[in-house]
Simulated assay, not measured.
Amino acid sequence: MPPPSPCSSPGPSPRAFDHFLVQYKNGDGQPKAVRVPGHEDQVTISGLEPDHKYKMNLYGFHYGQRMGPVSVIGLTAPDYEAMTTEVPLTMAPEPPTKPRLEELTVTDATPESLQLSWTVPEGQFDHFLVQYKNGDGQPKAVRVPGHEDQVTISGLEPDHKYKMNLYGFHDGQRVGPVSVIGVTTAEEETPSPTEMEETPSPTEPPEEPILGELTVTGSSPDSLSLSWTVPQGHFDSFTVQYKGRAGPQVVRVGGEESEVTVEGLEAGRKYKMHLYGFHDGQRVGPVSVIGVTT
């Protein structure tokens, strides 16, 4: 009878990995990484914010292969002098996060296409599927890779309303749909030669306003501060659109402003903010940005 095998320890052997990597997001939501030698079994992550919750993800690397992650939630002390938290490298594995779909929006329209955008507040999908019916009532489907968050559906009819349904797929399971109604724009009629001759050409075309970059300039547990640029022209007003717990939300901003603080948000949550500009009754945009409350 062979001798019994020795029991394995719950964590990896201290020298089983070539090195480790601890990944987390700082207070601004930016990803950070700390490399640790393979013979170590603990590390101190410095430069954190006081009284702040962090999710630490640990990966092990062995002969070029990545293992993990195992994860843990750590909370820094409220004392402003205590700016570090220790992360032991022997952590109980956390069950994988089930991905969620949120906020499908139409971000652009032409006579023959609709551009769609969506958010995945947590988790990761393997791929997506956009389903709709064409002008003849025939079902159509467009497959999108899991790392994408937007797609342009082409080959549509002008001035036609479409209901777009988005599904996410993860480990063979289907999530959704989330849906949105989009309308393609009407085709512009080409003026006749007589009409073109009768229409005097302006000496100088009016300057059309342009939306520049939208950025998150600050965050708190219940608000996000946004700032944007208008490199050309002037808008009459702006709107910031996002999806809150109660559904789609809209914040109106005067045309002379270039920043706003969106309040009433939930702590520790990711929001996708869309900015539109309005000029002479026409809507321009959106430009979008992802923000995370603290």
Rank of each mutant, 00 (worst) to 15 (best):
residue 1 M to Y: 12
residue 3 P to N: 10
residue 8 S to W: 07
residue 11 G to E: 13
residue 11 G to S: 15
residue 14 P to D: 10
residue 15 R to S: 13
residue 17 F to V: 06
residue 24 Y to C: 00
residue 24 Y to K: 02
residue 28 D to W: 07
residue 33 A to S: 14
residue 35 R to M: 09
residue 36 V to P: 00
residue 36 V to N: 06
residue 39 H to I: 08
residue 44 T to G: 03
residue 49 E to W: 01
residue 49 E to I: 02
residue 54 Y to P: 01
residue 58 L to C: 07
residue 65 Q to F: 08
residue 65 Q to N: 11
residue 67 M to N: 05
residue 67 M to V: 06
residue 90 T to E: 09
residue 91 M to S: 09
residue 95 P to Y: 03
residue 97 T to D: 11
residue 98 K to H: 00
residue 98 K to R: 10
residue 100 R to C: 00
residue 102 E to Q: 14
residue 103 E to G: 05
residue 103 E to W: 01
residue 106 V to A: 06
residue 108 D to S: 15
residue 109 A to H: 04
residue 109 A to M: 10
residue 111 P to M: 08
residue 111 P to C: 10
residue 111 P to F: 04
residue 111 P to V: 13
residue 113 S to A: 15
residue 114 L to G: 10
residue 126 D to R: 05
residue 127 H to L: 09
residue 131 Q to T: 15
residue 136 D to A: 13
residue 141 A to T: 11
residue 142 V to H: 14
residue 143 R to M: 07
residue 147 H to P: 00
residue 155 G to T: 14
residue 156 L to F: 13
residue 157 E to W: 11
residue 158 P to T: 07
residue 160 H to P: 01
residue 165 N to G: 11
residue 165 N to D: 15
residue 165 N to Q: 15
residue 166 L to R: 10
residue 166 L to E: 04
residue 180 V to L: 06
residue 180 V to T: 14
residue 183 V to R: 15
residue 191 P to Y: 03
residue 191 P to I: 11
residue 192 S to A: 10
residue 196 M to P: 02
residue 198 E to D: 06
residue 203 T to K: 12
residue 204 E to S: 13
residue 207 E to G: 07
residue 209 P to L: 10
residue 209 P to Q: 06
residue 213 E to Q: 15
residue 213 E to L: 13
residue 213 E to Y: 11
residue 214 L to K: 05
residue 216 V to N: 04
residue 219 S to M: 08
residue 220 S to T: 15
residue 221 P to S: 04
residue 223 S to F: 09
residue 226 L to E: 08
residue 230 V to A: 08
residue 233 G to R: 06
residue 240 V to A: 02
residue 241 Q to S: 13
residue 241 Q to G: 09
residue 242 Y to S: 03
residue 243 K to L: 03
residue 245 R to V: 14
residue 246 A to K: 08
residue 250 V to E: 11
residue 256 E to V: 09
residue 256 E to K: 10
residue 263 E to P: 06
residue 272 K to W: 12
residue 274 H to D: 07
residue 275 L to G: 10
residue 276 Y to M: 13
residue 278 F to L: 01
residue 278 F to T: 01
residue 279 H to W: 14
residue 289 V to F: 05
residue 290 I to N: 02
residue 291 G to D: 04
